[in-house]
Design a protein around this nucleic acid. Sequence first.
DNA 1: TTATCTCTGGATAATAATTATCCATAACAC
DNA 2: GTGTTATGGATAATTATTATCCAGAGATAA
Lengths: 154, 154
Amino acid sequence: MKSDRQPPMTDGKQRLENMLEALKSRGYRITPQRLAILKILAQSRGHPSVESIHKEVKAVFPTTSLATIYKTLTLLKELGQVLELGFADWGSRYDGNRPYPHPHIICTKCGAIVDPESESMSVMTQEMSQASGFRITHHRLDFFGLCPQCQKEE
Amino acid sequence: MKSDRQPPMTDGKQRLENMLEALKSRGYRITPQRLAILKILAQSRGHPSVESIHKEVKAVFPTTSLATIYKTLTLLKELGQVLELGFADWGSRYDGNRPYPHPHIICTKCGAIVDPESESMSVMTQEMSQASGFRITHHRLDFFGLCPQCQKEE
DNA sequence: TTATCTCTGGATAATAATTATCCATAACAC
DNA sequence: GTGTTATGGATAATTATTATCCAGAGATAA
């Protein structure tokens, strides 16, 4: 598990503004550490782990604690500004670009995570809701396999 | 999180036979503890947790260790005889009736998990594979919301 | 600018699900 | 039955995440 490769991208600058606004408007302080974390989340086209965020932030603020990363991520989750991809076996990965449910494709060899385009989920959600009687609030869709790079290296 | 409710059902007896055969044919021993676990998995229309399986088995073999449950589940996973639904926050749940990828609907209040009917995933998998270049091996699709029962109790 | 008050960061301990270890014993082939 | 070896049980270890505690930074108003 090393790197992420990713195709398009939403506007990272805009996302940073949104995140900052979400914090400010609710009275949360914009500290240097938080700002650093927000930037990483807003810019990254990959889906960083807690560890990788921590490493990046420490490059600028060497005393930064892991707890600070967790606290900020928890806060952003509550504000709906980041999507958490929790895995039972490896640690969680985070998506700050598209903080709403959407499909992911995950390479089981290198850990790369990419966001494919898709519109069919809303239709499917409708069907599921009708068939089951559940009031569906969100979903999670992951595809697993080998990315093109790892296929070559086989 | 208390109970599971479930509609149809595959043939539990047949599933038990399949599981037993999978173990025997590869030289694994059929111990009383294993048999008890297999029966629970094959019959349960819900999606039992490690704890609930442990509790059930202990009713018959009081000295059964949690480790035994984990070992057997790991073995069955390797043999493709059980589907593990791992969650990052709560513990894992297991599906012994349909040990292949399929959608689940999960009640975020009571923890019930049901299996809706669905055929559309194979088509979607095709699309994903073509769009991303990944060689997709499996997937995971969860819908979250409130089950009919928990909606009433709101 | 300074005083005040509260939020936040850092260090560390605690938690909880799962996995690893070790050895006596039960399962199965012969 | 007997011998070989996988398995079960008890328990320690692991690992990601959360909780705790307090000094100090950030905001606010005078």
